[in-house]
């Protein structure tokens, strides 16, 4: 309990002192996870839309892969990307290992199946005749797509929330491909691991509280946006 209270106290002190090291770690955490979320959403929303709308041979297999991907062990993803990006690996010449880019890649891969899966499920729940109705009302194909995403907004927001929550709090893969290098690849989760190993439990707890606060704020903003799109507020 004392560690927790000390952690809370230290967290508040760190936040209000605007500690430059902390700000750097927070900024990198948000940059890496934010960019990974944008990339995975850019790929995952269309993929989820496609899987939710189309019926084709082999779809069940792909859906099973997506569901499996929703439970991907981060360390396995981290290890795979590590092997691909390591000097002897097929992508070693990119020089991305132990850089934020490698962390963004792994986090994008981790968030992608979550976004595809949640989007697919919410799109599939929309009555299929709605597409015909929208076309009849004069919507172009692009307008139909955006209207369907808007109709599935609760599921789409859940997809973004789940994706962001999974990657901002993830430690295994970013530790493997990022290496927790100070001023370069250190993010909140890897910093927590480091401080715990050093025995700085209060500082580790403080960083944990800050991480939770960031996740809560991001989710609250998404929910606030979702609430604004609710018909009861129009």
């Amino acid at each position: 309990m004392e560690i927790f209270l000390n952690g809370l106290r230290q967290a508040l002190a760190l936040i209000f002192s605007l500690d430059p090291n902390l700000l750097e770690i927070v900024r990198l955490s948000l940059e890496v996870s934010g960019l990974a979320l944008v990339i995975s959403a850019a790929m995952g929303l269309p993929a989820g839309l496609f899987l939710g709308l189309k019926h084709f041979r082999g779809k069940r297999f792909i859906v099973a892969l997506v569901y499996t991907g929703m439970g991907l062990p981060p360390v396995v993803v981290g290890l795979t990307i590590y092997l691909l990006l390591s000097r002897q690996g097929p992508l070693g010449n990119l020089g991305w290992l132990f850089t934020p880019r490698a962390m963004i890649v792994t986090q994008s891969i981790l968030a992608l199946p979550l976004i595809v899966g949640f989007t697919m499920t919410s799109i599939a729940a929309i009555p299929s005749d709605l597409i015909m109705q929208l076309r009849s009302l004069g919507a172009t194909r692009r307008q139909v797509v955006f209207t369907l995403l808007y109709e599935a907004r609760t599921g789409v927001f859940a997809a973004l929330v789940a994706g962001f929550g999974a990657i901002i709090s993830e430690v295994g893969s970013v530790l493997i491909v990022g290496g927790n290098i100070e001023h370069k690849t250190r993010v909140l989760t890897t910093a927590i691991v480091l401080e715990t190993r050093k025995g700085n439990f209060s500082l580790a707890m403080a960083l944990g509280i800050i991480l939770l606060a960031i996740t809560f704020t991001a989710n609250w903003l998404l929910l606030h946006l979702q609430g604004r799109l609710d018909p009861r507020h129009q």
Partner: peptide
Amino acid sequence: MVAVFQQPLLLNASVWRNVSYG
């Protein structure tokens, strides 16, 4: 041309937004 089907197939929004969709 526009069609009205047996099921109203309305968007999950207000009446006004539905009528203004087209």
